[in-house]
Design a protein around this nucleic acid. Sequence first.
DNA 1: CAGGCTTCTGCCACTCAGTGGCATAACTGT
DNA 2: ACAGTTATGCCACTGAGTGGCAGAAGCCTG
Lengths: 234, 234
Amino acid sequence: MTTASSPATESTESTASTGAAAPAEARLPLRERKKRRTRQALVGTALDLFTERGFDGVTLDELCDAVDVSKRTFFRTFTSKEDVAMEPTQELWTAFLEELERRRPERGGTLVELLEGCLYGALDRMTDDGWARRVLRSRRLAEETPSMGAHGLAFCDRTSRAALDVLRRRFRLDTAGDPRPRLALDVLVAAFHWALAEWTAQPGSPTRAQLASGLRAAVAAVPDSLTLTVTARD
Amino acid sequence: MTTASSPATESTESTASTGAAAPAEARLPLRERKKRRTRQALVGTALDLFTERGFDGVTLDELCDAVDVSKRTFFRTFTSKEDVAMEPTQELWTAFLEELERRRPERGGTLVELLEGCLYGALDRMTDDGWARRVLRSRRLAEETPSMGAHGLAFCDRTSRAALDVLRRRFRLDTAGDPRPRLALDVLVAAFHWALAEWTAQPGSPTRAQLASGLRAAVAAVPDSLTLTVTARD
DNA sequence: CAGGCTTCTGCCACTCAGTGGCATAACTGT
DNA sequence: ACAGTTATGCCACTGAGTGGCAGAAGCCTG
């Protein structure tokens, strides 16, 4: 009852809800629109409740009847309890894959640059107003909830594999015998994770631009990280 | 009944069981030895059963009474069903952390070299005869079982954080504001994952040495992976 | 080696995530 | 408005993981 909200009445950050607001998705069949609404209501309310009482402090049943949806329906929309809370990040990586599918590389550009570019492109596409806030809450939850962290990493891994597939298909890269494409991708992911962690730790409400520049900095630091020397304390 | 085995009678690859075989762990209090035996029996039988019928095809209850142990005891030994099947890898990374705690770096050596060295050191310590086979089965399971994959990645992430802590403590590295240590570590992990995947895919019974040389090759490929260029197919 | 002390184990009951099946309601196109 | 499709709700069920308590097993003194 606390954070209650029917699929129609969104919980926190809705998609400018009423009127003829939504630009592209407006003319979708009613069924689809409903599905989206429930989906968003679930994500929003889930983040609300989880942030308030912790991931483990909220049962699916509670979430479901806060949104007024049956548990069965929940599992037709998301694959797990973790899944709903990780949606914001997944949105980004899905966009990344689409970007990767479209972009043409600069002549003579490196693979890392290409991938990096795709990620910036994806970031630019997260136009939805509440996205930053959603990611923020999602990440903070992930940091304090092992099972969410694990789910996030697994998703990340799946996405990487998908990306490698695209690289093989579109750019004729050998992703089976040659470790380099995979390494390049993992490096980018590592840099992104670093940037994301920094960004999440920041107080206030960070912006997408800040995240992008953090990523830029991290990627720039990669070559240096390979030659960094160490001396024992002793 | 199939793969049955009491904690005393190991299932597959035991620790040269009887006699005065075990060198260091011999003089442990009986209680500890028993615990170890149950632990190993659980891992062995779990890998047997999971390999045979799939991770999801075996319930914990089945596993538990194959080893003749109560479910309650299982959960005092391992944190989850996934955990027991990932034990072999965890053994390696635990050794890695210990290695990292001990080693002194070469003068002027790079961080990556240090970390790499620790990993070889850890690998060398996996003297237990059946280790390679256990890892192999564990990895193959992980590849076909999402929840195991996720668990493995999460463990890997925790280990990385622990390693960063050591780096900060022992080598006065700034692991908070500077992305480079984390990046170096992630690069090593990425290389290792590649090597492990190759190694796992190989037919027959690969050896630790092969894994080590795969890792060496992957690490060597890193600088190249950063400068790899791409051209669109078109 | 008897005794109490500590620690591990087994059992039981319970919560909660996730699934399958089926009847029903809600949208779809014509 | 009607038939056909598709989402939804409900119900019962499996299986992972936990808490609590009683009793057994290893441990450590004298």
